[in-house]
Structure formats: structure tokens, C-alpha cells
Amino acid sequence: MSVDRELHVATSIRGLPSWLLGRAAARGRALVAEHLARHDIKLWEHAVLSALSDLGEISQAELGRAIALDRKDVAGVVSGLEGRGLLTRAPDPRDRRAVIITITADGKRLARQCARAGADANEQLLADLTPDERARLVDLVTRVARVDGEPTASST
């Protein structure tokens, strides 16, 4: 394939919604990661603390399902956060095989700081949009991503 042909193929995908959504997601993740790094926290650590702030104490398995993270990866993130005193793990008195995760006061404080950092990153991401455009974008992306609980084609 000639260089000219390769360039055309590479640029022809730039108008596809899938490519554009991927680029927007990558930019958003990078901005959030940059803002979270100021608090010495990573994206998945933030997701865990945020989920615990929202859901309260929860089993480690339920936590993984809530944030769509593999159980082995959840265990690693939880272990790191526990080592920093941001959450605790304890055996579930109802099921000795299960572990209950609870966010600590320091974890809650950091989760609030990270929520503000995430909001600042999203403000930067959407700075060129009006409030109405932002609301419309969130509505459209929610529908496309099917994050509202709607079944996807692969689950039907």
C-alpha cells in the first residue's frame, strides 16, 4: 500500500463516531488521571473509593461488579488502598469466604478531594461546550454507551 493510500485510510476513520468517542474518552481519562495524580491516586483507586463512598460497606466481589473490574484487579487495588489507611477489609460474618470493604474517614476525605479533581478535569474536557451542549452530549453518550442499564446487543 502506498504512503498516500495509508494516510487516506488513517484519516478516513477520523469522522467515525467510534473513533471520535474513543479519542474523547482517551482525552478525558488523561485529564482525570492528571488531576488525580495531584492527590497521589490512580483512576481505579478513585473508582474504588468513589464506589465505597456511594455504596457504603460492600463485599469485595460486589465492589468489583459495581465498578466492572476483575476480582484479581480489585484485590490489588483494595490492598494498596488498605495499606494507605483509606479502607479496611474484614471477613463477612455471614459468609466466611467473603470479605467486606469499608472506606475510612481518610478515604472519604480523599474521595471528596478526588471528586472535585474529577469535576475540574471534566470542566476542562468540556470547556468549549455550552451548558446545553454538555447536557445533550451526556444524554447522547449515555444512550450510545448504554450505561443506563439498557441491554446491549451482545447481552440479548
Results as ranks from 00 to 15, higher is better:
79 S>I: 00
96 R>C: 06
69 L>T: 03
88 T>L: 15
91 P>W: 02
58 I>M: 14
61 A>H: 14
78 V>W: 03
59 S>C: 09
93 P>C: 04
94 R>D: 14
73 D>R: 13
89 R>T: 15
76 G>C: 02
60 Q>S: 10
98 A>F: 03
58 I>P: 03
76 G>R: 13
73 D>T: 12
63 L>C: 03
77 V>P: 06
64 G>E: 05
74 V>K: 01
61 A>C: 00
72 K>V: 11
69 L>R: 06
67 I>T: 09
64 G>Y: 00
70 D>V: 03
84 R>A: 15
92 D>R: 06
62 E>W: 03
94 R>C: 08
67 I>C: 10
64 G>R: 01
65 R>A: 10
100 I>E: 11
94 R>N: 13
78 V>P: 15
80 G>N: 14
86 L>D: 12
96 R>F: 02
87 L>F: 04
76 G>Q: 12
74 V>Q: 06
80 G>M: 05
86 L>Y: 15
84 R>H: 08
85 G>K: 12
70 D>K: 07
62 E>K: 07
93 P>I: 00
83 G>L: 09
74 V>S: 04
79 S>G: 14
83 G>K: 12
58 I>K: 07
65 R>Y: 02
79 S>V: 00
82 E>L: 03
74 V>P: 02
87 L>G: 08
62 E>F: 04
66 A>C: 04
59 S>M: 05
73 D>Q: 14
93 P>R: 02
92 D>N: 15
81 L>N: 11
59 S>K: 00
76 G>N: 13
75 A>H: 11
58 I>W: 04
82 E>K: 07
69 L>K: 01
70 D>H: 08
70 D>R: 03
67 I>W: 03
95 D>W: 08
100 I>G: 07
58 I>Q: 13
78 V>L: 10
62 E>M: 05
99 V>I: 14
61 A>T: 11
63 L>K: 00
66 A>N: 05
84 R>T: 08
77 V>D: 05
75 A>C: 05
99 V>Q: 10
78 V>R: 05
80 G>F: 02
83 G>E: 12
88 T>Q: 14
67 I>L: 09
63 L>G: 01
92 D>E: 07
93 P>G: 00
71 R>I: 08
70 D>G: 02
58 I>L: 14
97 R>M: 10
74 V>H: 01
87 L>T: 00
98 A>Y: 06
76 G>H: 04
